[in-house]
């Protein structure tokens, strides 16, 4: 186990730049949050509005998918290129998603009553 902890003081301008950058990032997160709330609202609204189920089902699944991608890439920082081994991590996450999808597919098609 390595124990080296690099502590480098940042220059004043670098520090201010970083501060600004994370403030901008935070603002983006709030916008993402607003989008998520909106998507949730739309999902509930389509169901309440009583459209045809064949239309609603794909739509709300799509909305859920968009929300999840937003959560993963913005809130959970999968878009952070500097995070350690983020490439390996996203490979694992997406492989997990593919396997999860296989389960859905199988249980929907080859389990019968």
């Amino acid at each position: 186990m390595s124990h080296d902890t690099e502590i480098q003081g940042r220059s004043q301008s670098q520090y201010e730049f970083d501060r600004r950058k994370s403030a901008v990032q935070m603002r983006k997160q709030v916008i993402n949050f607003a989008i998520m709330i909106f998507l949730t609202f739309v999902a509930f609204a389509t169901v309440v509005a009583d459209f045809a189920p064949t239309f609603i089902k794909p739509v709300i699944l799509l909305l859920a998918g968009i929300q999840v991608v937003l959560q993963l890439y913005s809130f959970m920082h999968m878009d952070d290129k500097h995070a350690p081994f983020i490439g390996v991590i996203s490979t694992f996450v997406w492989v997990g998603a593919v396997i999860a999808f296989t389960f859905f597919l199988a249980f929907n098609t080859i389990i019968w009553w």
């Binding site: 996450v93 389960f103 929907n108």
Partner: peptide, 17 residues
């Protein structure tokens, strides 16, 4: 979390069927 994804996938699949 990757393993938890699969855990919940199994539960979801069971629920759906």
């Amino acid at each position: 979390i990757c393993s938890d994804i699969v855990l919940f996938a199994s539960l979801f699949a069971t629920y759906i069927s």
